[in-house]
Computed example of a mutant assay.
Amino acid sequence: MTELPPLREVVNRHGLIATKALGQNFLFDEQLLSRIATVPGKLQGQNVLEVGPGPGGLTRALLRAGANVTAIEMDKRCLPALAELNEAFPDQLTVIQGDATKIAPETLFDGPWHVAANLPYNVGTALFTGWLSGQAWPPQWRSLTLMFQLEVAERIIAVPGSGAYGRLAVLAQWRSTPRIAMKVHRSAFTPPPKVMSAIVHVEPAAMPEGVSARMLERVTEFAFGQRRKMLRQSLKGLPGAIEALEALGIDSQRRAETLSVDEFVAIARVLTK
């Protein structure tokens, strides 16, 4: 295993301070970081996309696991620290300075890849939903291993009827399998965020036939846009939706939070046709 200086030493030497504007919270516990790197499974020789590596805590854990890491970092201050990792792990690390929301991962890899990231809180959900969207399925990514605020993680795995259940749960569950791999206490970060965090692991599942991904997104957008209202009110602006409910025998007086993922898929399938 490559010997590296402690992360705190690296951060202090480069004068790095986590910036709230960039949603940064640094992780220094290398044992915890190594555990996170094991969540996707064996990474030896696998391509991994990391967003927001910061000073490279998770990056070094992924590199030690044998992954070929492409890291996208917006903060130029972190580039010298990441350059040191490039020297320690020749030919395993590629660092791109830029905005991950504007870079298409499929342009970075010749084959499939995993995503592993302590996502910046301010862009995490947007990146996640972007990786879940699109008609092409299965996706080119093999798994997503992502750090979220615990509240967001619970929304991703939520079941119908629960307070956390909503559009994010449906989009995450209709053709993939998400789970909370571990919870991470706020004290593990520097600076400590105000909330607990969790690692969410997602793997692609079979895509239901005859369903447009865009249509499902529209159905959930309308249904949960006015979640306290009955479906007959929240879906009335979506052409054909009320008729779809009738055809499927779904009571239009129900609210969106009571419908299962399969029921949302069934509505989207009827509207797709």
Rank of each mutant, 00 (worst) to 15 (best):
K194M: 05
M182R: 04
P138M: 00
V115D: 09
T145F: 06
L144F: 09
L238W: 11
A172F: 00
A117C: 08
M230L: 07
S143R: 07
L216K: 04
F189Q: 14
V219M: 01
P191N: 09
L171P: 08
W137G: 05
L171V: 04
A158R: 01
R155H: 09
P160F: 02
A206T: 15
I199P: 13
V211P: 10
A126E: 15
V200H: 09
Q149V: 06
P239E: 03
E154S: 07
P204I: 04
T190S: 15
V170R: 03
H201R: 14
G225M: 10
P178K: 03
A153Y: 06
R186P: 01
G163H: 13
V202I: 04
P178A: 01
M215C: 12
N118S: 06
A117M: 02
H201P: 00
R142K: 15
A181I: 07
K183L: 05
V170M: 00
S143D: 03
R155A: 01
F128C: 04
M147G: 04
P139D: 11
V211G: 05
L171S: 10
G237L: 04
Q173G: 02
F222M: 12
A223I: 05
L238E: 12
H185T: 14
E217H: 00
R214W: 02
A126R: 14
W141Y: 03
A164Y: 09
S143C: 01
A188C: 13
T177M: 09
P204V: 05
A164K: 15
K236G: 03
G130C: 05
R218L: 13
G163P: 06
E203P: 01
L150M: 06
S197Y: 07
G225C: 11
R227A: 10
V159H: 12
A116H: 06
W137P: 11
V123R: 06
R227Y: 10
G210V: 09
N122S: 12
E209D: 15
V115N: 09
G240Y: 07
P178E: 00
G130K: 09
V202Q: 00
G134T: 01
L238H: 13
A164P: 10
A223G: 13
R232V: 08
Q149M: 05
E221F: 04
H201F: 11
F148N: 03
